[in-house]
Design a protein around this nucleic acid. Structure first.
Lengths: 355, 355
DNA sequence: CTGAAAGCGCTTACAG
DNA sequence: CTGAAAGCGCTTACAG
């Protein structure tokens, strides 16, 4: 299989026309006779023409600006996502892609709207947003879409909007996997406390639904709760301590959302780590330590690095290469992380200079 | 952060010299005065010059041929690895990279030597090989290296050779993770049968070492065996049946290598699937079915797609971009795959057209 | 050792 | 609607 590539010049020669005309046909330029256009398209197809994107971007001189809006917590998650974005940016450097990254305060979801407007004002060609409060973002997303600027949701979705695509996990499955892990670690028998938090965000509801669905396969497992914590982490430690007192025979804890480290610390301090299996989501240095100490048994991750990487690549391909249609939803993997494979999920960036 | 890029022309203008000279300095061409060269390099650094690889490959017209040698089994694993190679090939199409893929018979390891020679004869610029019988490959690998052709091992290593790099898992850790999964699923108590096979390949020894190391943390778990199977799968089913008869209170089976589906089928037919936890490695359609049926509890995967993808990318960067030094060993993730996250590990290629 | 020129594959004003 | 020409950033014979 020797390297050989059909060029616009090859097509031009076959048809005895100019390369300019071939290019116009290939790129949907309107200044072209429909008949010649069809002829060119046919021959191109026949000869197996594939555009040289490198040459294309070289001459086009169009700069692409992709805006990213994320919120501030949890830090480690965004750090990893950002590394994925950085890799994509590096890969697309020759293609004149620039990333504009805005991080908003988790306590002020409405600032994300301003962030989007700021990006548009700066001339962003495409936007990826991780909505802090999805409901609040429907309007602005639809507005951006109407302007012809593709906007993609990452990590958390706004399904009832006109976003072009969503990159992230299937939350229901994420709950199901947690149930399977706990079910297997309890050998199908025991009491599990279900931890969630006060507000009723869709994604958490989905996790819990998924969890209940799968845990139902274990008739001898009883689910206690849901116990609702504050999102900011206040009183979490004390609350867990209270639950532990009330339930002297607890076998597992499912932390469906956030503040896993506080829950784990309470269990650790109670001295019952060897009796209680803990499963939660996502990593941080702190959570990693608790896994190493056998306090947390497993954590489910969601390819944060790739969520960032895919978002940028997809948007670039969408705006620059016209690569459509979209699948709509790009589900990243649900990764089961234990003590023995933990390290591989902590540092995605280490091979960056090789790839 | 507006897009802006320093070109060779910018550097030339600053120094009032020609672009040709700048290029010569940047590329280590010998026809250049050492003093001007240093001056150029300094200014380039200072101005933050980054070569436009796209333009570079466009003008260089050098074709790169990367040869791949793998053996025939297990099929599904190589299928996934091949998909990763295909993605890399697609990404590097504009950079004139061509892949030459040779699959050898698992029963004839020596044909891999011929395959390498064939690739060299065809003019391969770099080679990736998955050695069927690592010991046999030391000589040829060293020979290829001496010719100045980088050769990388993928999936299984030849550590005592001069291969430039290895892409694959840490086998000891792979054994350790299996032990952790079984240890947790047995809740730290019970009997595990350790299955391996007759020949003493290094990687399997490492898995077993890793397994024993971690299972040692569970004082109430007893490891039976090792039970040695034939690599080709003969008599496996009957042998497992016999073990099951001899051990009426078996709680887990660790299949350290190959033929997991045959082991699982025997357990299934014995009707003791709900009593026995099974952990093994790698996926196939058949293994996936057995996971869905709750016969196999977990499988440890090793990023087969990325093993292929990384191999090609690394070799290309090595020969075309001079991106060194090598880390030597690129460890892919150990992926814990259960029923509920199985699907994500079966079809890596589905988003190919978006990326 | 260095500069001027040609050319990689592509697109797009500019004439006609 | 089409062709000829210029030019993106780069490298490499070719003269000198």
């Amino acid at each position: 299989m020797k390297y050989s590539s059909v060029t616009t010049d090859d097509i031009a020669k076959v048809l005895k026309i100019s390369r300019g005309t071939v290019s116009r046909a290939l790129n949907g330029n309107k200044n072209i006779n429909e008949v010649t256009k069809q002829k060119i398209l046919m021959i191109a197809e026949e000869m197996g023409y594939k555009p040289n994107e490198a040459a294309r971007s070289l001459v086009m001189k169009k700069n692409y600006m992709i805006g990213i809006v994320v919120f501030s917590e949890p830090q480690y998650f965004w750090k990893q996502l950002k590394q994925g974005i950085a890799r994509a940016e590096k890969e697309l450097f020759d293609y004149r892609v620039t990333i504009e990254y805005i991080e908003t305060d988790i306590r002020k979801p409405e600032t994300q709207i301003e962030a989007i407007q700021e990006l548009i004002a700066k001339g962003a060609d495409a936007i990826a947003i991780s909505p802090n409060d999805p409901e609040k973002m429907v309007g602005i997303i639809d507005e951006v879409t109407k302007k012809g600027i593709p906007i993609l949701t990452v990590s958390s979705d706004v399904p009832n909007s006109t976003r072009t695509s969503f990159v992230g996990i299937n939350e229901t499955k994420a709950g199901g996997l947690a149930a399977e892990l706990l079910g297997k670690m309890l050998n199908g028998k025991g009491k599990i406390a279900l931890i969630t938090f006060a507000s009723s965000i869709l994604s958490i509801q989905q996790r819990i639904t998924g969890f209940r669905g799968v845990i139902g396969n274990y008739p001898d497992i009883e689910v206690l709760g849901p116990y609702k914590l504050s999102r900011t982490g206040e009183f979490v430690y004390d609350y867990i301590m209270k639950i532990l007192e009330e339930e002297p025979y607890l076998d597992g804890i499912y932390v469906s959302y956030g503040k896993l480290e506080l829950v784990a610390k309470a269990v650790k301090d109670s001295g019952r780590s060897d009796k209680i299996r803990i499963v939660g989501y996502d990593l941080s240095e702190e959570i990693a330590s608790l896994i190493k100490e056998n306090v947390i048994d497993a954590v489910i991750c969601q390819e944060p690095f790739n969520q960032g990487y895919y978002s940028v690549k997809i948007l670039y391909n969408y705006i620059a290469l016209n690569r459509k249609p979209f699948l709509g939803i790009i589900n990243t993997k649900l990764e089961a992380v234990f003590k023995e494979n933990l390290n591989y999920y902590m540092h995605q960036e280490i091979y960056d200079n090789l790839l």
